[in-house]
Amino acid sequence: MQPNSPAPGLYITGLGSQYPPYLLRSEDLDQLAARLHDVSSPGIQKLLRVNRSTGIETRSAVKPYEAGFATQTDPSSITEIDQFFRQAGVDLAIRACQKALTEARVSPQQITHTIAVTCTNQGNPGYDFHVARELNLPPHVDRMLLHGVGCAGGLSILRAAAQIAGGASLRRKPARILAFACELCTPNVRHYLSMAECSTDTDQVNIAAALFSDAAAAFVLCNEYATAQDEKVTPQFELLEWCCDLVPDTAEHMTFYADIDGYRASLDRDIPKYIKSAIRPMFERLLPSYDEQFKSRSTAEGQLLSPLGICDFDWALHPGGRAIIDGVAEVLQLSEDQLQTSREIYRTRGNSSSASVLIVLDRLRSKSKKAHVVATSFGPGLAIEMALLRRCQMNM
């Protein structure tokens, strides 16, 4: 492409999400703690109080608390958690990918790249290798596995896919990218309970056991060279703008490290405050370019449109917690309709880390008629990811 030429066309042509079959209620964690731990300890009491106040009615889980890791005398080791992910996590990711491929009308042999993310597995070869093999993707497929981005990961892989697809467009080559996220958080609950029981400082009690759940999500992103070749492809979203940023001096506010008995997480109570302050400036930075690109396409179709604003967008907000959702709604003056899907996912399934924002984006398609969507997520760093998309298929 020459300087000042139009940006490459980037299209999400298929989306898929997959929850495991079990749902955990808040009282299930109470019962698990009572069965295996000293519920009179200050740390356990603090965790269970938080558990009853999250606003989450049910969390998705790969196992109920009456089976598997929840029935062992001791918490699962990091080795056991790793082995379990390589079976249950891979299977969950495969099902999400199959849904995305089916909707995109793309065969496994047509996939040119894969981009995966997880924070709940660290093995080598990565879990993306096993997913690609089970899906019968070509052995020469270009694979990428992201790590270290936590809950921001769903949009991190969207950003990486956009950059790769744009690079392929510069070379006038088709790109059909299968991107997926998978997290198994509940196998780590026993470790969190044990840590809470031993804690002498209730301010340091990790509340992750009350928030996190299990899920996988996937999408297929194609550039304009791929969609031109595939007559049956029906784009769902066009990706027009994206960016990432770090909130200064917040690196220790959200962490997730491997420990001998599982993963050790930390979540600072000030996270909602920092996210509230970061989201509006990021959106306002992206909006003019998005508006210009959208207008240029609409003008070519003979439409005359007013400038876009916050009220014109649905928000696929990562459901990281009720304080985060409420805080973003307040600072941006969003309506309940604009955050309806994020709230529903949080209430009924909890926070599935990197997969959550993609699940919200997937479900949003059947919930609203707005033509524009902001997707935003955040993770360790504190890192903020944002993408602005135009809906191609409207459910009127």
Rank of each mutant, 00 (worst) to 15 (best):
Q2M: 05
Q2R: 09
P8C: 00
G9Q: 04
I12R: 04
G16N: 02
Y22R: 13
L24V: 15
D28G: 06
A33T: 00
A34Y: 03
L36F: 14
L36E: 03
V39M: 05
K46S: 10
N51P: 00
T54L: 08
T54P: 00
E57M: 08
K63L: 09
E66I: 15
P75H: 13
S76K: 08
I81D: 05
Q83G: 02
V90G: 01
R95F: 01
R105P: 01
T112V: 02
T118W: 11
T120K: 07
N124F: 12
D128E: 11
A132S: 04
P138Q: 13
H140Y: 13
R143Y: 10
R143K: 11
M144C: 11
G148E: 09
Q163S: 07
A165E: 06
F180L: 04
L184R: 02
V189C: 03
Q204T: 05
V220S: 02
V220H: 01
N223G: 03
A226E: 03
A228D: 06
D230G: 07
T234R: 12
L239I: 14
D245F: 14
L246T: 15
V247H: 09
V247G: 10
D249T: 08
T250M: 11
A251C: 04
M254H: 02
T255Y: 10
R269V: 15
K273Y: 13
P281E: 07
M282T: 12
R285E: 11
K295E: 12
A300D: 13
G302F: 11
G302P: 09
Q303N: 13
S306G: 11
H318R: 06
A323R: 15
G327S: 00
G327C: 01
V328K: 06
A329V: 11
V331G: 05
L332R: 07
S335M: 09
E336G: 03
T341Y: 01
T341S: 04
R347Q: 14
R349A: 01
S353G: 00
A355F: 10
D362Y: 12
S368V: 10
K369C: 08
K369D: 03
P380Q: 01
A383N: 12
L388T: 04
Q393I: 06
